[in-house]
Computed example of a mutant assay.
Amino acid sequence: MAEDSQETTHFGYRTVARAQKADMVAQVFHSVAAKYDVMNDLMSFGIHRLWKRFTIDCSGVRRGQRVLDLAGGTGDLTAKFSRLVGETGEVVLADINESMLKMGREKLRNLGVVGNVEYVQANAEALPFPDNSFDCITISFGLRNVTDKDKALRSMYRVLKPGGRLLVLEFSKPIIDPLSKAYDAYSFHILPRIGEVVAQDAESYRYLAESIRMHPDQETLKSMMEEAGFEQTSYYNLTAGIVALHRGYKF
């Protein structure tokens, strides 16, 4: 999905200056950070845990490997990867948002996840890591908030090791029409109300619903990954395409 122009982009359904989007997204996640995990469970009826488990299962991560959990938020994937890579491996939880990174660090330390996890505040479009650094990169429900998705995908490709793989877990386009209509009604009427009651922030959850609709569909994202250099790209529709897991390799 092409951006509107070189100077503007979308923030939900609004057109904004490209230079403004990162700050606007940051405000959303500063606002929702404290209630992020609770809202994830409520919004998805807990199914997000199954989507993330499937992502872990598809990652092929093994002991001793180095993993980047990009836009890692409160660290659900990082906690699982930490156990998989063991003492000889490393997981980097990276997020552009300081509030989310702080919540992730506190949550994982409370769970006893220490030793092989590093926390880095990073912009997906310009990752602060050397070339060929990671065996696996995951970005879970984060790519749709990135201003320049093509640039971010190229950045991820650069820091992957040859033979490494990228997994993008993201909301996508439902493949069953009646479900699509029900999903729209839920997203635009019920979700903001839940956000208002639980997080005292209906507007941020209205943006999140809009950002899902503006995100590239399954085939478009697959093509974007291929244009960034990834090979053997594929995707799995989860919950009838409400969410899709894309995977691509660097050779």
Rank of each mutant, 00 (worst) to 15 (best):
D4G: 01
S5A: 00
H10E: 04
H10W: 14
Y13A: 08
A17D: 15
K21N: 00
A22F: 04
A22V: 12
D23I: 08
M24S: 10
V25H: 06
V25N: 09
Q27A: 14
F29R: 02
V32E: 12
A34K: 15
M39K: 12
L42C: 08
L42Y: 07
I47V: 15
H48R: 08
R53G: 05
S59V: 10
V61F: 14
V61L: 09
R63A: 06
G64C: 11
G64H: 15
V67L: 12
L68C: 03
D69N: 08
L70A: 01
G72S: 12
D76C: 11
L77K: 03
L84M: 15
V85Q: 11
E87G: 00
E90L: 15
V91D: 02
V91A: 12
A94I: 02
K102L: 11
R105I: 05
E106L: 03
K107I: 10
G115L: 11
N116F: 08
P128A: 09
F129E: 07
D131N: 15
F134D: 05
D135P: 01
C136T: 15
I137Q: 00
L143H: 08
N145Y: 00
N145F: 05
K149E: 13
D150V: 06
R154Q: 15
R154I: 10
M156E: 13
M156F: 04
R158H: 14
V159W: 04
P162V: 01
P162Q: 13
L167Y: 14
L169R: 10
E170W: 10
F171L: 14
S172E: 02
K173E: 13
P174Q: 09
I175Y: 02
D177H: 11
S187V: 09
H189E: 03
H189P: 02
R193E: 14
V197L: 13
A202N: 02
S204N: 10
S204H: 07
Y205K: 06
R206M: 08
Y207H: 07
Y207P: 01
L208A: 04
R213Y: 12
H215V: 00
P216A: 15
D217T: 08
D217V: 03
D217W: 12
E226V: 13
A228L: 06
E231P: 04
Y236K: 11
Y236E: 05
L238I: 13
G241W: 07
I242V: 15
I242S: 04
A244I: 09
H246A: 01
R247Q: 15
